[in-house]
């Protein structure tokens, strides 16, 4: 099984008529994802390569029965687009937009929690989610993923998500679902949400978790793993050599004072029984070992 999405998930793309939206929306469809519509205000009634475009999410949902939305709009408009998706009846929102102001993210996150408790937001600033062979929402290249499981992947970093997929696929190890939660300060979906879903998924036998410096989500995940996770977890944390006080690309990747260091995260995970590896290749090799022993 997969988590959050499957082969029946119907997806609309908010921003389908834009350059990025069109490129990735069509790529997702070509992968086999049920991309059933697009939303661009003022462009309702047109289509993008046969995919109907609607003026509002509500109209799109009513016409297509979509439950998921892929938000590909500029930072200025992304928060409003996310809220519109929730109001329009979407229950799973993937937002890849990078550069949304932190205060907008904080308001949007809490708005969803308070007014739309059944809606899950993935991102912003994430590569999206891929359940190999079933559904791909986002910007991950489908050809580096291998269907069939048994590994679930959850990652805060885009390119390292690809790296993790690649390491496993190279060794012939498939993935149930690969979730990129994104590198922003207020992600809609966190490590624990994904770990819990993987723990509950019978087809996922082991989990690869890729973290990075900044915040304390990895430490919280470690605490959760210690008490709840029965499946083996392999982890890699990027940023051991990152200098304090500098944002390492992602808005959330910053060591403030002594908080958020890679070492603290690795220590917490190791103490929770996680196999902590020092680079992505080593993490891939460790996972091969674990899967072969299953």
């Amino acid at each position: 099984m997969s988590i959050f999405v499957d082969e029946n998930t119907k997806v609309i793309v908010q921003g389908l008529t834009g350059g990025q939206g069109k490129f990735h929306g069509l790529r997702n469809r070509d992968y086999g994802t049920k991309v059933v519509g697009g939303v661009t205000p003022g462009k309702g009634g047109t289509d993008v390569d046969g995919i109907p475009v609607f003026n509002t999410v509500k109209e799109a949902v009513e016409a297509t029965g979509a439950t998921a939305s892929f938000v590909v709009v500029p930072p200025k408009f992304a928060s409003a687009a996310i809220v519109e998706a929730a109001e329009g009846g979407i229950t799973f929102i993937v937002c890849i937009t990078e550069g949304i102001p932190a205060h907008d993210e904080a308001v949007t996150y809490n708005r969803l929690v308070e007014d739309f408790p059944d809606v899950r937001l993935l991102g912003p600033n994430c590569p999206g989610i891929i359940s190999p062979g079933k559904c791909n929402i986002g910007i991950t290249s489908g050809d580096i993923a291998l269907p069939g499981g048994p590994v679930g992947i959850v990652s805060r970093s885009g390119t390292l998500t690809y790296q993790a997929l690649y390491e496993l696929t190279q060794h012939g190890i498939g993935q149930t679902t690969c979730v990129g939660i994104g590198g922003d300060p207020v992600p809609g979906t966190n490590f624990i949400d994904c770990l819990a879903a993987f723990e509950a998924d019978p087809e996922t036998k082991a989990v690869m978790m890729i973290g990075e410096i900044g915040g304390s989500e990895e430490e919280r995940a470690a605490e959760w793993i210690k008490h709840n996770m029965t499946k083996p977890v392999v982890s890699y944390i990027a940023g051991v050599t990152a200098p304090p006080g500098r944002k390492m690309g992602h808005a959330g990747a910053i060591i403030s004072g002594s908080k958020g260091t890679a070492q603290a995260k690795m220590d917490a995970l190791a103490a929770a029984g996680v196999h902590v590896c020092l680079n992505p290749t080593a993490a891939g090799e460790k996972m091969v070992e674990i899967v072969q022993a299953l």
Partner: peptide, 27 residues
């Protein structure tokens, strides 16, 4: 030089692990 913040950070780490030191982070 790397593409993506995570990979760039990871590159710094790996260089350090094999005995080198990075002159910069560049995503």
């Amino acid at each position: 030089i790397a593409n993506g913040a995570g990979l760039a950070m990871s590159t710094l780490d790996v260089v350090n692990q094999v005995g080198g030191s990075a002159a910069n982070f560049l995503d």
